[in-house]
């Protein structure tokens, strides 16, 4: 690579030749992926293929050992300032929600704005109520997460991320821990965010959602990106046999 390639301002996320090992286990192999501002990328693939690891590398919940990760032009390095800068641009929604059980819904949402951003309590609460309305549960603000259904909890988690006003939202299997009847309420909220122009990277096996929302589909297997392209091509004529097999299995149900 000649010198340090200039970051492209239209790129929200850029992964170039990213590699990661757990000890001797090569978990990510030369991952290259670009996400333009406003783009929605859906990542799928069999369990253990490295989907979570990719997403978790983007906000430094895991460290990559080789290659370049840039978010909004800032390169992710070991410098704590770079990590903090990138985390302030990137929100994350987890499979297990990871809400704070000792705090009310409202406190879950205002903790980051108040403590990390130094916002006043009144301002943070107004913002929290705004985003609770966007995920359609303003009436649950005073409850504890444990008193809500799984679908409601995940929507609170989405609202908690939105309160930090990120440029990018990462979702790691946001509906996998939910009872079937609650999946659509979460996917609907995500689809609304997509329409509003949020840049999203979503790990999911919900192919109906992917067809509707994705600009770009990514299929991973054994730590590699095996296939990548717009959804029409991806679902219509997948090239690799591994991707064909995966899609035929997952689309059966």
């Amino acid at each position: 690579m000649p010198g340090n390639p200039q970051p492209d301002p239209a790129l929200a996320i850029e992964l170039a030749g990213v590699n990661k090992w757990y000890g001797t286990f090569h978990v990510l192999k030369d991952i290259s992926l670009t996400v333009r501002a406003g783009e929605k990328v859906v990542i799928c693939g069999p369990s253990g293929s490295g989907k979570s690891t990719v997403v978790r590398c983007i906000n430094r919940l895991e460290e990559h050992q080789k290659g370049i990760i840039r978010v909004d032009g800032t390169e992710l390095t070991n410098d704590p300032q770079s990590v903090a800068a990138i985390r302030s641009e990137v929100g994350m929604v987890f499979q297990q929600f990871n809400l704070f059980p000792h705090l009310t819904v409202l406190e879950n949402l205002t903790l980051g704005p108040i403590k990390a951003r130094g916002m006043s309590k009144a301002e943070a609460e107004a913002k929290a109520m705004h985003y609770l309305e966007r995920v359609h549960i303003p009436d649950q603000a005073r409850k504890r997460p444990g008193q809500l259904s799984g679908g409601q909890q995940q929507r609170v988690a989405i609202a908690r991320s939105l309160c930090m006003e990120p440029k990018v939202l990462l979702f790691d299997e946001p509906t996998s821990a939910l009872d079937p009847e609650m999946i659509s309420e979460v996917l609907d909220v995500m689809a609304e965010l997509a329409v509003d122009g949020m840049t999203m990277v979503v790990v999911t096996h919900e192919m109906g959602f992917a067809r509707k929302v994705a600009d770009q589909m990514v299929f991973m297997d054994a730590g590699e990106i095996v296939e990548q392209g717009p959804p029409e091509e991806f679902f219509g004529s997948p090239r690799s046999p591994r991707c064909q097999k995966f899609l035929s299995q997952i689309l059966q149900h």
Partner: peptide, 14 residues
Amino acid sequence: AKGQTEAAQTIGLN
């Protein structure tokens, strides 16, 4: 659970 620390990190807490 580790997820609590991770969630705190993603909302910018040190």
